[in-house]
């Protein structure tokens, strides 16, 4: 033991320690950060897990290649837009805890993070006659929300849930956070947002019997 720590060996070990200690403590610039894990509590509120959802989309999970992805904002707007994924993320971000209630009977409470839908619509410039926002998804799904509801309720277009990026099965890249509405209004895998002037335009489930308004305190079925 004495021979190892004596003389030139001691100096050599000291030099090694100086060289490698920063690497061991994570101070090196070469350290890559891993994806954060989901949070299950936010400001004292217990959150559901990303895995607590029941997969009930019309065609199963969709896998979107973000390098080819574009979000179209069109219809009754002054300046139609075509955003890339990163362009949408460049907007001011917001987060809030909202519960999704499914007509099947289950619900999940999640911390959603995303951009305000009304920010995107303002950039496109909604025409005065526009009153309905139609969401189209990658799998052919569609649903509608009133334009005033989006303007008055700070509705999010979410790209994160519980502090992690939306997984493909949860709607990556974007999901509508239609708070106070049944789950069928929370469209996933959004590819197009169209403004129209027909409040009776029926989306996928609305045309198959579910209520047009989709209000939690209203009827599930009919008009």
């Amino acid at each position: 033991m004495r021979s190892v720590l004596s003389g030139s060996n001691f100096v050599f070990l000291l030099v090694l320690a100086v060289l490698f200690l920063p690497g061991c403590t994570g101070q090196s610039s070469g350290v890559k950060s891993l994806n954060p894990s989901e949070i299950r509590n936010y400001q004292g509120k217990d959150l559901s897990s990303v895995n607590d959802f029941r997969e009930n989309s019309i065609k199963g999970s969709q896998y979107i290649d973000v390098s080819n992805y574009h979000l179209e904002v069109s219809g009754l707007v002054d300046k139609p837009r075509n955003y890339s994924y990163s362009e949408v993320l460049a907007h001011q971000k917001y987060s809030k805890v909202v519960t999704l209630d499914c007509v099947e009977g289950w619900s999940v409470t999640i911390l959603w993070e995303g951009v305000l839908m009304k920010d995107l619509l303002e950039e496109a410039g909604a025409k005065p006659e526009a009153n309905t926002v139609i969401f189209y998804a990658y799998d052919g799904y569609s649903t509608t929300l009133p334009l005033d509801y989006i303007r008055n309720n700070d509705i999010l277009l979410a790209y994160k849930m519980n502090n992690v990026t939306l997984p493909p099965e949860r709607g990556f890249p974007f999901q509508v956070v239609a708070e106070d509405k049944w789950g069928y209004k929370w469209a996933k895998w959004i590819t197009k947002i169209e403004l129209g002037n027909n409040p009776n335009f029926k989306g996928y489930w609305e045309s198959r019997g579910y209520n047009q308004n989709g209000d939690l305190n209203g009827s599930k079925f009919g008009n």
């Binding site: 029941r54 009930n56 019309i58 065609k59 199963g60 007509v103 099947e104 489930w205 198959r208 019997g209 579910y210 599930k220 079925f221």
Partner: peptide, 21 residues
């Protein structure tokens, strides 16, 4: 719950909304 199977099996008659009603 299994509308993706039941609806085609019933030739589109029994969709999710009608089933739930």
């Amino acid at each position: 719950t299994e509308f993706r199977t039941v609806t085609p099996l019933t030739f589109g008659i029994l969709n999710k909304a009608l089933s739930q009603q």
